[in-house]
Structure formats: structure tokens, C-alpha cells
Simulated assay, not measured.
Amino acid sequence: MKIIVTGSLGHISKPLAQELIAKGHDVTIISSKADKQHAIATLGAKAAIGSVEDVAFLKTTFAGADALYGMTPPNFGATDMIGYYRHIANAYAEAAKSTGLRRIVYLSSYGAHLEKGNGIIRGSYYAEQILNELKDITVSCLRPGYFYYNLYNFLGMIKAQGIIGANFGGDDKLIMVSPLDIATAAAEELTAANAGSNVRYIASDEHTCNEVARLIGEAIGKPGLQWVTFTNEQVKNNMLEHGMPPAIADLLVELGAGIHTGLLGEDYEKHKPTPGKVKLQEFIKAFAAAYNHN
């Protein structure tokens, strides 16, 4: 198969491309950075340098391809974050319709079943709606949980304050996932014979925030490390003090509140997947190494 992979050489896209190439597929990797071209070629893939916001570029790149792994690149500079997600999804859809693409696997998120109450993930909700309207193209929406590497955001807080803190915590459950398990699922969806349109949840492990804090504390030599639950107002004010745009802060606070109430995971609990292979304890080894290095 000829498969297009977006996301450059990111946490998911690189292992995904490696798996597809190892299985004999013809892979083209889209990257916005020309300096990635050599590394992409070294993997055994073709490089397409351009922006996923550029429909003309996408049409040229998609020409003759069988399948697309599509994701929305992070862009915290966007003035309308939800609109940005819609814009990227519309670009994928317009390019796919005119190039004969037959399969799209889109990186969405758990919580994307919701039209409100899910913060930034609302962008994934609208992206799913746009892509699912495509005719004669099968669409798989991957809905992974909370990425392990998001825990790196707490490194500074642990060092400075000796705690982990957010507007979720305590006995709130984290549905966590490794990018490697997402890559495996994406490869399966892209290459499945007679695949139909579907939603696929992806999770590697589940723990309460208290359990995560305990495991991290044991690994970094801080037994008794606590995960403190702050109010929405406290979290928002902290974000604003650090220069985050108010609109982004509101979305992130709403997202955290959705984790706290369990709203984000409601549909996941009805369609729980077989857990992935990469467990939290494995990630925590990398977390501890990063903590001790800095």
C-alpha cells in the first residue's frame, strides 16, 4: 500500500512509519520542516515538505495514495483553537475527495464524543464529524487516552513545590496511553483488509492520580509525593500568570474538569479496548531519568 503519514517524525508518526516500512508499505511522511528530509529518507520513507493547511500541497501529496494517517499538529498560537482543528480536517477532506484516497485513520481523542465540556478536545469532535461525512472513504477515528508524556509537564512543579497539582487529582482515574501503542493501533487500522469506518479507543494503563503520584514518588526518591487537586480558578489564574492566552486557558481548564468529573471517559468506559503493551511503570523509568537529569 501507498500510505501517507502526517506528524513528521513525532512520538507516534515515527514508530508508525517504521512499522509500515518494515511490513513493505510505500510510506510518505509529511513534515513542515525541510531539515527533517534526511532523517525521513534514512527511515526508508519519502519526504513531502509542506503544510497540512495547504490543500494544494495535500492534493499533490495524496495523489495515488491508498491511505492517510492524519493528525492535527499542535498550534497553541492559534487564536481560535477549535476552528484550527476544523480547518485541518477540512483540508484533509477536500484533498482526499479529489485524489482517490480510500482510507483515513485520524488521530482524535477520548472525550471526542462530546460537543461540549471537553475543552480542546472539542476540536477533535468537529474534526470527526467533518471526516465522517466523506463519501466512499472509510474513516477510523482513534481515540487515545491521556498521553504518558503529558506527565513531564509536572517536572518543574515537583522540583519547585514537591507536589503534582491540577484541577483533577486524588482518586480521579487517568486513562493513559503510550504513543507506541497508538502507533501499533494506527498501523493495524491503516492496513486492515476490508476495514470499515469505526471508532477505536486506545489505552495502555489505568491508575488513579494518587497511584500515579505514589509510583512517581517512589521512582524519584520522594516517597509520599502527593497529587493535589486545585480549583478551576486556581489553575486558570496560574496559567494566565505564566502568559497563556485566556481562550486557551479556558479550554485547558475545561479539559481538566472533564477528567475530574469523569465526563471525558464516559463513552470509553462503554467501549473499553484491550490494553496496550506499554505500562505506566515503563514510562516512569524515563520520567525518573528526566527528573534526575534536570
Rank of each mutant, 00 (worst) to 15 (best):
A193P: 12
I164W: 01
A95Q: 11
Q161E: 10
Y146A: 10
A288N: 00
G44R: 11
I120H: 11
L180Q: 07
M1T: 14
L155A: 08
A195Q: 08
I163P: 04
T6N: 05
F147A: 02
C209H: 01
L114T: 02
A127I: 03
V139C: 14
A78I: 12
G7W: 10
V105N: 06
S51Q: 11
Y69H: 15
F287Q: 11
G258L: 10
A160S: 10
Y92L: 13
G117A: 09
G111H: 10
V212H: 06
Y146L: 01
N150D: 08
V212M: 03
F62R: 02
A78N: 06
D136A: 07
I12L: 15
Y125Q: 00
D136P: 06
E282V: 12
A63N: 08
T229F: 00
E115M: 03
L251T: 11
E266Q: 14
T274C: 08
K97G: 08
A160G: 13
G217N: 02
T274Q: 15
E269D: 12
A192T: 15
D136M: 03
S13H: 13
Y69C: 11
Y126C: 08
Q161T: 07
N118S: 13
T231C: 00
Y92N: 00
A65K: 01
G44W: 06
C209Y: 04
A45S: 07
G123S: 13
L255P: 10
F76V: 15
I120G: 09
L225P: 00
R122Q: 15
Y291N: 02
E266C: 13
K277L: 14
T191W: 09
G170T: 07
F62N: 00
D35V: 15
I12F: 15
H113E: 12
P73Q: 07
T261H: 04
V5W: 08
T229A: 05
L142F: 14
K23F: 14
M244S: 04
A127G: 13
P73F: 14
S204F: 04
T138C: 13
H11V: 15
I202M: 05
L134Q: 02
M81P: 00
A187K: 06
G224S: 07
K116M: 06
E133K: 09
H293M: 08
C141A: 13
G256T: 06
L107K: 12
Y126R: 01
K270M: 14
V177S: 03
E19T: 07
I49G: 14
A289E: 12
L20K: 01
P275S: 06
N194R: 15
N238G: 10
I164R: 04
K277P: 09
H87T: 13
A127D: 03
A127E: 07
S178M: 04
S124K: 10
T138V: 15
R122K: 10
T61H: 09
I104V: 13
N132A: 09
H293R: 11
L114V: 09
H38Y: 07
T191C: 11
P223I: 00
I40Y: 06
L68Y: 15
A286Y: 07
N194I: 13
L263P: 03
A193M: 05
L155R: 03
A219L: 01
I121T: 12
I175G: 02
S51Y: 02
E211D: 06
A22F: 04
P246T: 09
A34I: 12
N238Q: 09
Y149S: 07
I4D: 10
D171A: 12
T208L: 02
A289N: 03
T42S: 13
L107H: 14
N118T: 10
K279V: 12
S8L: 08
H293I: 01
Y291W: 09
N198G: 13
